[in-house]
Computed example of a mutant assay.
Amino acid sequence: MTRDDGFSPDERAAVYRCIAERRDVRRNFRPDPVPDDVLARVLGAGHAAPSVGFLQPWNFIVIHSAATKEALHAAFTRANAEAAAMFEAERATLYRSLKLEGIREAPILLCVTCERDRAGPVVLGRTHQQEMDIYSTVCAVQNIWLAARAENLGVGWVSILSLADLHAILGIPAHIVPVALLCIGYIDHFEATPDLERAGWRQRLALADLVFEERFGATGGALVDG
């Protein structure tokens, strides 16, 4: 008896739809609570991510407290003012018009961390690329994002925060690296295109311009359409 591990056409289409319709959500979070069983499934998807040397370096800090959200929002506000000053003229004006977080609006915040020394100083697969544990944690973040989309939950990644503030506010030990602060909750609707694309900040690049064959910069293949 053989086992069928394949995906049906409908299942395969659902995976690609989830990837295509994932959005970085910063607005329109509804106050509806996220049921515990739904959050558990989303966290389980994060824990199922691939990791170098099967290190599983992640931890997940689930945040509901309004006081903690206010502290994180204050840290974001400070960092955002610093970031705005880095842009010039029209770019600075456009930057200041963007909504870049939903910290106070989202029912749940989730901080994903990386415990780099979880398996000791020598880790299979990290012997020559020390940052692979960080990349593994980012894979967990992506799994969470896609699972959340499949659960009809919006997710927004807030990166305009100092790591020192995250350590202090969330009590994260010095040897553990905060990788992502995510806003999670049900939203009114998912946009057809990314917020920054609609706002005119950047447009999606053509895949054909990014695919090379054999060596970096070697184009001309027929792998993707122009």
Rank of each mutant, 00 (worst) to 15 (best):
M1P: 09
G6P: 11
F7G: 15
F7Y: 15
A14S: 12
A14T: 14
I19W: 14
I19Y: 15
V25I: 08
R27A: 07
R27L: 14
R30K: 14
D32G: 04
P33S: 01
P35F: 04
D37T: 06
L43N: 12
G44I: 10
G44Q: 13
A45V: 15
A45R: 11
H47Y: 15
A48S: 15
L55Y: 09
P57E: 00
W58L: 02
W58D: 05
N59A: 04
S65H: 09
A71K: 06
A71H: 15
L72Y: 05
L72N: 03
H73P: 01
F76I: 00
T77F: 03
N80A: 08
E82Y: 12
A83S: 09
A83K: 10
F87A: 05
F87Q: 03
A92Q: 05
T93I: 02
Y95N: 06
Y95R: 06
R96D: 08
L98S: 09
E101F: 00
R116K: 11
D117A: 12
G120L: 06
P121V: 01
V122N: 08
L124G: 07
L124R: 06
R126W: 05
R126Y: 06
H128C: 11
E131W: 12
M132C: 08
T137C: 11
T137G: 12
N143I: 11
A148S: 12
N152H: 11
V158E: 10
L161Y: 04
L166C: 02
L166H: 07
I169V: 10
L170Q: 08
G171T: 02
A174M: 01
H175F: 07
V177F: 15
V179D: 14
V179A: 13
L181E: 07
G185Q: 10
G185N: 07
P194C: 04
P194L: 01
L196V: 03
E197S: 05
G200D: 00
R204H: 03
R204N: 14
L207G: 11
D209T: 01
F216E: 09
T219A: 02
T219K: 11
T219Y: 10
T219L: 04
G221A: 10
A222F: 03
L223F: 11
D225G: 10
